[in-house]
Amino acid sequence: MRNLPPFQLLIDEHGAAVHRFLIATIGTGEADDCYQETFLAALRAYPALRDASNLRGWLLTIAHRKAIDAARARARRPMPVAEPGDLSDAAEPDPVPAGGELWSLVAALPCKQRAALALRFIGDCAYAEIASAMQTSPEAARRSVHEGLRRLRQEARR
């Protein structure tokens, strides 16, 4: 595929949404690293990209995969045990979305619902795009969004 847009335009147009998506799904502590990995992976694959009709969806798909990788790596790491007197913020709990009380509730949802809500309301994705980013069916994507919304409403009432 020739005539791909200059990669900088992808960053200018979609970088902020990808970053916010990662903050919502993986937390502030790892969002920057995941963001860099996302765009490096995209840059690596870019010249061979055949279908440039939905670059935002393509970037969010990569970001979603990087967020899953980061969450798995975190699960494999031993839990940080605070030594007496060790109050360094390296042991800061994750995920911690900065700003937006509602999104801190989202952070506590199961990861599928969290990702689906982030794709829907930060990535502004249609259900078909959420499905392709999460490698699931549009129906399952819709269910994850609705289940996430239902649980949020419950939580918000407490």
Binding site: H19, F39, L43, A98, E101, R153
Partner: peptide, 20 residues
């Protein structure tokens, strides 16, 4: 209303995305 709150209250980091 919930949807709008989710769209408007999307989390942000003060510094914005890092340079790559």
């Amino acid at each position: 209303r919930l949807e709008r709150a989710l769209r408007d209250g999307a989390p942000l980091m003060a510094a914005g995305p890092p340079q790559i």
